[in-house]
Design a protein around this nucleic acid. Structure first.
Length: 582
RNA sequence: GGGGUCGUAGUUCAGUUGGUUAGAACGCAUGCCUGUCACGCAUGAGGUCGCGAGUUCGAGUCUCGUCGGCCCCGCCA
């Protein structure tokens, strides 16, 4: 096919306006739709900026070309811009149209499996398979314009704050703890593997040892774990590290960055963000990433519950259980069916069941045998509104909080207004948790996290009571970032490795280079990593991270567009010294 | 690894108690149509009922397995 002579584009379709009126212009784009009325035809031409109506009337020299044009055909069109007698208020260019004088077909299209603007009514499976068509939709084009803007804004912001963008390796070492690694076999050293980074953690700390003082990177991270709506095997982090600073200064920088990013969508983010310690968050919300848009918190009703003379409760309480409750406003009118569903949900969430209590038209009712006088006193003493629904979970404290927290989230759906932004810092995480399976302590954050100086004496006596200078940034119940002050003292770092039950040999093999670096003047430093995809998901109001990743994987880690992962040739395997087990 | 849910025309769906030739809408093709913008009208084509076994005289429908999409638990910061 001979190359067609291309005229220079005058303007994007969606941007045609008053300035072009009366002029002859050239536009490029895809056929969004066409309407043929006999001797008169209309083409809605679409490019990344929007739609433009093209008129093909009796003045058009080669009307036969219309036979070869269908949905998604790529066209170059030249013609005169004229004012429309009946404007279309739904289109930005709707006051104008172009009387075509020349149309060139640049690329034909088969009948597409769906048209971009109908993407919401087709399955996500189909959208994955034909992702390039899905991405043509206005909604997706908007998402990726927003992503590009947020990316650039972040770079400019951090540059102004004195941060240097420095790249770190994608081929690095497997990490002994944390998520599963994606491994990359070495051809030259058969049997040895690189791993793709779960995060640039050690490298960014080494950059602090190297004296760069302020580093950032918008970089890809990889974790081979099962997926969710907000989790992909590869994802992008805004990775930040700084020396000679402390938590307060870092928080201020991140808060101002968030403020600028969310201003892209017209939000006015109030500073500073709220802060809760991990302990406070767990006690009041049963979660370390609470959604503060939901107005009610978890309350402890262990004391009043112990006075209710319920045999069932008494038995549970005797085993040291706590009674955690939610007072849900205006929910007293829930039907029996709804209450049964709540009970079932509670069980699915790992609880023993959910006790409900409310005041109906004919007095107090509960799913547990409790005297009405006890309930009346309880409502009065706790100042519970008569129209509220009380839900109670009796269980070991951590379990009761966890179930109550998940119920709170579950029943709070109608409070989750996407236009409202509730930022929150959760601070002072425990340094360790006890890993029941492995029968040892694990780092809550990662092994380089600094304990609070005042807690260091507790390391030997009460390791689980040690709090870390570690923090998460939470937005509307989604964890969008986390970080910590790092250990820069080799003795302390060694001690932590030992506490994690790492063998001396393993420490030396996996972290020898890192501990070495701590010997040569490592400055105090701290940092954070923000989940750029999750941030964009919330910024664009999407419910899935897949909507702001151009080519995402399915929840079973497949790419339906390319078919990856896929088999490789025996030759490739042989070169790597790899045999596949069945 | 586990639980839930979905899979029928290009697409979105309907399909009764297991029973003749599996339907609708949109899309597509052809024809008509000069102001449409979800254009309209007419005619027509279009099916491996995800795949594989089984039960049955007979399976889109029942059973088992399997593959795939989505949501959740485990896992993951």
């Amino acid at each position: 096919m001979a190359e067609k002579e291309l005229l220079k584009r005058t303007v994007y379709c969606g941007l045609v306006g008053e300035a072009h009126s009366g002029r002859t212009i050239t536009v490029y784009g895809w056929v969004n739709n066409m309407r043929e009325l006999g001797g008169l035809s209309f083409i809605d031409l679409r490019d990344r900026e929007g739609l433009l109506q093209i008129v093909v009337n009796e003045t058009f020299p080669t009307p036969d070309i219309l036979k070869d044009i269908g949905k998604e055909t790529v066209l170059a069109i030249s013609g005169m811009v004229v004012k429309r007698s009946k404007p279309n208020p739904d289109l930005p260019s709707g006051k104008f149209e172009v009387i075509a004088s020349r149309i060139t077909i640049l690329a034909a299209s088969e009948v597409p499996p769906f048209i971009p603007e109908n993407r919401s009514s087709v399955t996500e499976e189909l959208r994955f398979k034909y992702r390039y068509i899905d991405l043509r939709s206005q909604a997706m084009q908007q998402n990726f314009k927003l992503r590009a803007k947020a990316n650039l804004l972040t770079r400019n912001f951090l540059d102004k704050e004195g941060f240097l963008d420095i790249e770190t390796p994608m081929l690095t070492n497997a990490t002994p703890e944390g998520a599963r690694d994606y491994l990359v076999p070495s051809r030259i050293y058969k049997g040895k593997m690189f791993a793709l980074p779960q995060s640039p953690q050690q490298f960014k700390q080494l950059l602090m040892v190297a004296g760069f003082e302020r580093y950032f990177q918008i970089t890809r991270c990889f974790r081979d774990e099962d997926l969710r709506a907000d989790r992909q095997p590869e994802f992008t982090q805004i990775d930040i590290e700084m020396s000679f600073s402390e938590q307060g200064e870092l928080f201020s920088i991140i808060e101002r960055l968030m403020r600028e990013i969310f201003a892209l969508r017209g939000h006015d983010v109030a500073l500073p963000f709220r802060r809760l310690s991990y302990q406070e968050a767990m006690a009041a919300y049963g979660s370390d990433k609470p959604d503060l848009r939901i107005p009610y918190t978890i309350q402890d009703f262990t004391d009043p519950a112990s006075t209710w003379n319920s045999d069932l409760l008494a038995a549970t309480l005797a085993q040291g259980a706590k009674v955690k409750g939610l007072v849900i406003p205006e929910a007293g009118a829930f039907s029996r069916k709804q209450l049964d569903e709540i009970n079932e949900t509670g069980k699915k969430l790992g609880g023993k069941g959910v006790i409900w209590m409310k005041k109906g038209d004919d007095g107090f009712k509960a799913s547990l045998k409790i005297g009405p006088e006890h309930m009346a006193a309880f409502f009065r003493q706790q100042k519970i509104d008569d129209r509220a629904l009380v839900l109670l979970v009796a269980d070991a404290e951590s379990q009761a909080l966890s179930v109550a927290g998940k119920l709170r989230e579950h029943l709070g759906k109608n409070f989750q207004d996407k236009d409202r932004l509730e930022f929150l810092w959760v601070t002072d995480f425990p340094l360790f948790f006890y890993n029941e399976e492995e029968k040892r302590f694990d780092s809550n954050h990662h092994p380089f996290t600094m304990p609070r100086p005042e807690d260091i004496p507790l390391l030997d006596s009460q390791p689980l009571a040690v709090q870390a200078i570690a923090y998460d940034l939470v937005l509307n119940g989604v964890e969008i970032g986390g970080g910590s002050q790092r250990i820069h003292d080799i003795t302390l770092q060694h001690k932590i490795f030992h506490m994690l039950n790492l063998e001396e040999k393993e420490i030396d093999e996996k972290f020898g280079f890192f501990l070495n670096a701590l010997k040569f003047g490592a400055p105090p430093h701290l940092g954070i990593a923000l989940g750029f995809d999750r941030l964009l998901m919330l910024l664009s109001g999407e419910d899935s991270i897949r909507e702001i990743i151009a080519f995402p994987k399915t929840t079973s880690s497949l790419c339906l567009l390319t078919g990856s992962p896929s088999a490789v040739s025996q030759h490739q395997l042989d070169e790597l010294g790899i045999a596949i087990k069945n």
